[in-house]
């Protein structure tokens, strides 16, 4: 039960809410490790926000990337200005020290993620409020040789989506379903409802000849992420 009052100014910005008990921290800092893919999920690490997650991927076989993402969710908190019947969502992506992607591209990815999560979060539940999500790309290294040059951001999109989903659940924000995505040869497709509904499609490379194949691959990968997230939540 979260007793924090989000409708009022809460004093200095570095004030820490008292709601997070130490007990949950010890529990969640126990990293959940999946042997087959070394996909590490962690949530509730950052205390100063309403929900957070850490996603780390180290697997040269399945993915092209070695990546760490920190996601923090602030909100739903009151917004200033005129009445809005539902919450407004904002997502910001930030480069880590490697400064790998240019800001314009990150903004494009951010608005794509907003589009995806607009369809998932139950925004009408939170009128006149805002939900702010920050993703920090802590570390990102391309492992496969051929895609090193293209500097492709698509491959980390599924991790971003999983990370946001986990952080949202950690923050206790109502979502329709666990949104996950899969990556296959430049195609990123995000699903809900066991792959029956698409909520996002992103393609930066190549032509659109093998869409069916990509759809199937992405679906299985998304399912895999979803299972990992569910087991993580249950273990917590």
């Amino acid at each position: 039960m979260n007793v924090q009052d989000r409708r009022r100014l809460l004093g200095p910005s570095n004030a820490k809410p008292i709601v997070f008990s130490a007990a949950t921290d010890i529990q969640s800092s126990e990293p959940k490790k999946d042997e087959s893919s070394s996909f590490i999920l962690n949530s509730g690490l950052i205390e100063n926000c309403n929900g957070s997650s850490l996603v780390e991927i180290r697997d040269p076989k399945v993915t092209q990337h070695q990546t760490s993402l920190i996601t923090s969710v602030y909100g739903p908190r009151a917004t200033k200005g005129s009445f809005t019947s539902q919450a407004s969502l904002s997502i910001q992506l930030k480069n880590g020290s490697s400064e790998k992607y240019n800001t314009t591209e990150l903004k494009e990815v951010s608005s794509f993620l907003v589009n995806v999560f607009n369809s998932v979060i139950n925004l009408s539940r939170y009128p006149k409020s805002g939900i702010d999500i920050f993703i920090y790309i802590l570390y990102d290294k391309v492992l496969s040789e051929e895609s090193k040059k293209s500097n492709n951001i698509s491959a980390i999109l599924p991790y971003c989506i999983s990370a946001i989903t986990l952080a949202l659940i950690n923050a206790g924000i109502e979502v329709d379903d666990i949104a996950t995505a899969g990556y296959y040869k430049g195609d990123v497709i995000s699903f809900i409802k066991n792959g029956e509904e698409v909520i996002g499609y992103w393609k930066d490379e190549g032509n659109c000849e093998s869409f069916d194949v990509a759809l199937e691959h992405c679906k299985t990968e998304a399912q895999k992420f979803k299972n990992l997230i569910t087991t993580h939540i249950l273990e917590e």
Partner: peptide, 25 residues
Amino acid sequence: KIRSPIRTLTLNNSYSKGFDPTLLQ
């Protein structure tokens, strides 16, 4: 030919929801 980039996007935030994958095709 259809080529990249392809993106989904939502044009409003009140009616946004998922869709059947076959619609994409």
